[in-house]
Design a protein around this nucleic acid. Structure first.
Lengths: 203, 203, 203, 203
DNA sequence: AAGTAATCGAGACGGTACGTCAAGTCTTCCT
DNA sequence: AGGAAGACTTGACGTACCGTCTCGATTACTT
């Protein structure tokens, strides 16, 4: 599912084949050596393809990397509909943590951030990509509000950022340890809030 | 305050002078052109210094960048002691948002992240740097707990990440708009919690 | 009048048309930018034709260039028959000098030499071409011998080379100034000979 | 004796060494494969030197080729002073013919012409080079005039061109066979003149 | 008039070489 | 003696053309 080029089927089968081997090679290099390890010449050699063929299909290295990254990803997580918000959020965050730490594509994550940093178009693609990936959280929270499980005045956008932000922060910025169990700590703190319950004591 | 080399006063005044002009040039390039814009040759030329001289003082580009970044920063924020937790947190987060978006060194931030990505030693330095920068939040929360303003069982580490994580996430990852007013939304959501008051959140 | 392909009339009008626009475009590029400026891709683009079409009709760039050059040339000079040898030779050499310096196709001349240098088949074509162009000189000299105006033992081949050689030499090799008046100097020196009249030259 | 760069002794022995191996490799390629066979990458590989090193010392391929050509040449021919003009001229022309056909550097000659064609600066160098090489002819003729062996009104410049021009013409342009014996034919025709003896030459 | 064959454009493909930039190393010069 | 200067090898950049190769889409010529 190419994103940066026309999505309709390529006529020339050579195109299809070239795109595939190039993305495959890029993804491998991405995982093995990160952003800096993805050189056009390296990709060309590993894919058994001429440099020009790569440039023919991708304008910038960043966009190639984005496409390769996307081809690595499993399809978007399913909607969370267990009806138990806490469990749903923890499940999803655990998935995110795994994705950022132990998954096949984990080593490619900072490369992607870096690509976004260099190429505004890629940064837009990343944004779109994340919005789509956030949808399950968004739905889960919205439904919980409708069920009365969450306060009606909950700030959904801030909430989304407060759930996933800490994960990304630890992975990319502070590089503190990031175990799956961190999911529960964030979700519980998120649900409970920090302030004491004058009327209703915390807990 | 050099971090990567012996902190005691350098004897040779030439060394002192070289270090200064190199850091100055690096910082300028960092701001103007980001991580990729900082080349050793570029720094050498702008600083009017030979490449060798740079390599003599810094082992890697990443460490040079870290040092330059640090020389850009104003000294750590003061302790927050207004006694009003919400106001303190908002004040601090606003500062962080400004730092990441409009400050002089804002353009250098992703360069720093990127440097951390390439050089584990730098990533450790960034971590230490952030821990120190986080101290005011840490104190503010701890004192609020002691004052009874925050629940005793508050998860301090998770909380710190939930306050600053969303900011970094928006700045570096999703690149959503990031206005100062976002500080209030995060702090309020953090304090209030998401769960409705009537029932206790699932535990 | 194609030389490198079957000279009989092409049946398909598409072929005729393609050949024409390609030669036209080649000639233009040849004049504008010389041998190195004639690239197959450039010709294709200027002619509004696919590269394949060019390769279909010419096996090598050199031969394309030769054909284009020939299409540029006016038909061979007429026989020189004024009966005055000196005037005839001067007239013809002046024409050659103009052709090599100020004519429309002058800029293409070294391209042609160069093409001959790379492609033996072209070099043969150039040779044939020159022989044909030399015919007027050849006749003029032969008739002058018959008229008794030139010595019977004149070395005709050497003479031809001694008349045109200096022109080409100045144009291609030494690049000394080459004015039309040079024609007279060469012809006079040629007729008169260098040796003094009193003694016979060494034999 | 470098011509295109400062003639004073290079300080850094690395420079001297680099120049030498590069010129050597260029000369070899020039002889083996002509102008088109001299690629910077090819020279670099054969010389065991980095491309950048070549670009550091020569601005263009043409100038590199000229320098290599010059390093190939034996020093200029000695003055011709046998006192016998005919013998002297024949001797010199035979040398030229050998140089253009069977010498070590013969295959490089058209490359040099081609280089001159692309780079005006090289064409100037070639001109200067030829003027110097022509000096022996020039002297021989002048002295013969003084000795009364040649007519006082001989056109020296035209004569020079009429002696060497035919050789170059056959070698580069018409590519007719070019044996050493051609030297005599040219010299004799040159001395004797074409016009019949009975009357004074046409005029 | 229909069918088939020649010819076309478009452009992907694997290549080679270009000339440039920057990396990090190493040698020489100079004070 | 040690710093500055800068030559060196290396490797990648992105571009231009090369000559070959599918791939339909027109023609043009049979029959």
């Amino acid at each position: 599912m190419p994103i940066l080029t026309e999505p309709e089927a390529a006529r020339d089968p050579r195109v299809t084949r070239s795109r595939a081997v190039i993305l495959q090679a890029t993804a491998e290099l991405l995982i093995e050596a990160g952003f800096a390890g993805v050189t056009i010449e390296g990709v060309a050699e590993r894919a058994g393809v001429a440099k020009t063929t790569i440039y023919r299909h991708w304008r910038t290295r960043s966009q190639l990397i984005f496409d390769a990254f996307e081809s690595l990803m499993e399809p978007s997580a399913p909607r969370l509909t267990s009806g138990n918000l806490r469990a749903d959020l923890i499940y999803a965050l655990r998935g995110l943590i795994r994705g950022l730490t132990v998954s096949r594509w984990a080593p490619a994550v900072s490369a992607l951030i870096e690509a976004g940093d260099r190429d505004p178009e890629v940064s837009r693609l990343v944004h779109d990509f994340l919005v789509e990936r956030m949808a399950p959280f968004h739905h889960a929270i919205q439904e919980a509000v409708e069920r009365g499980e969450l306060a009606k005045d909950v700030d959904i956008d801030a909430s989304l950022n407060m759930l996933t932000g800490p994960i990304y922060y630890r992975r990319l910025v502070s590089r503190e340890p990031l175990a799956e169990s961190f999911a529960e700590r964030v979700v519980d703190q998120f649900l409970r809030g920090a302030a004491t319950r004058r009327e209703e004591p915390a807990r």
